[in-house]
């Protein structure tokens, strides 16, 4: 659609701007403020320049948390995106009771409060009371997510797959629904194989929604806090201490405001940078689709 130029449109955006300025810009400025100052208490602050940033950039703790975070986000993207596409391809096509049932049940994990997701998996995988933990223990697998770092990682990754694959499924399903039947009939006439149908008809049609899925999954997995915090509390040791968990520990637990603020800003910039790449790709596809 061709848009007309109208500078008065700014007035319609104004309420959003004011609200976001209050709920995002002011707090962000507070963070910037802390990141360049130090205090001896009594609300007396003095300027330290970029010291905190240097300290954080060089700290082992930040590096380790960042590496864990990138590893975690990569793993869940690698599992959830293909799995989501696979499930979406097998969603029932016709509108029936079974379709509605599938949709409702699939969407259910998305609506569960994040701390409850953590609780569910805690209860599910404990070796004394959990179905998963108990069964694994019973068949002789040495599994204990509170003590073994690898087990903790596996538990958290399965939890995230359980929690969020549905989002990818629903997005891809929406993309698939928009493909006209004629496309499939044409593919049939050409005797296209299942793989070719997927590769040349379904995948291009899903490109837009897939980018949204990747963008959302990347952002949210990079910010993950509540679920691993409830399940493992960041342990055993620091094995599952992701960026947000580390940040909250630093800011609210230890009250190291300066380093925590510098940490926050670097963290935010990393997310922003990667998201910007996805976003640009998305806009590009959008415009391609429209022309």
């Amino acid at each position: 659609m061709k848009k007309t130029v109208n500078q008065k449109a700014w007035f319609m955006v104004l309420p959003v701007l004011l609200l976001v300025a209050f709920s995002a810009v002011i707090p962000l400025m507070t963070v910037v403020n802390y990141s360049v100052q130090d205090t001896f208490g009594n609300n007396e602050f003095f300027w330290v320049g970029l010291e905190w940033f240097e300290e954080i950039i060089q700290s082992e703790r930040m590096h380790d948390a960042l590496i864990r975070q990138i590893l975690f986000s990569s793993i869940i993207l690698i599992i959830e995106i293909p799995l989501g596409i696979f499930i979406a391809l097998h969603m029932p096509k016709k509108n029936s009771l079974w379709t509605s049932l599938c949709l409702v049940l699939i969407a259910l994990p998305l609506l569960i409060p994040w701390n409850v997701v953590g609780t569910i998996w805690q209860i599910f995988s404990r070796i004394d009371i959990g179905l998963l933990g108990y069964s694994l223990d019973a068949i002789g697998v040495d599994y204990n997510y509170t003590q073994n770092a690898v087990d903790a990682w596996i538990t958290i990754i399965i939890m995230d797959v359980w929690h969020w694959t549905s989002l990818v499924v629903l997005l891809c399903y929406a993309g698939l629904q928009s493909i006209p039947d004629a496309y499939y009939q044409a593919a049939k006439i050409d005797q296209a194989s299942r793989w070719n149908t997927f590769r040349y008809i379904e995948l291009p049609k899903m490109k837009g929604v897939l980018l949204i899925a990747i963008l959302l999954r990347f952002m949210d997995s990079f910010m993950i806090y509540t679920e691993p915090f409830v399940v493992t509390g960041g342990g055993p040791g620091n094995a599952t201490t992701f960026l947000s968990i580390d940040l909250v520990k630093m800011a609210i637990g230890q009250f190291d405001l300066g380093p925590a603020a510098a940490f926050s800003l670097i963290y935010f910039l990393v997310i922003l940078l990667i998201s910007w790449v996805f976003y640009t790709a998305m806009i590009h596809t959008d415009e391609e689709n429209q022309s």
């Binding site: 995002a24 707090p27 962000l28 963070v31 952002m219 990079f222 910010m223 806090y225 960026l243 947000s244 968990i245 940040l247 909250v248 800011a251 609210i252 926050s264 963290y267 935010f268 997310i271 922003l272 998201s275």
Partner: peptide, 8 residues
């Protein structure tokens, strides 16, 4: 995209 942890 802002992590809630940053804003808490």
């Amino acid at each position: 995209m802002a992590p809630p942890a940053v804003f808490a």
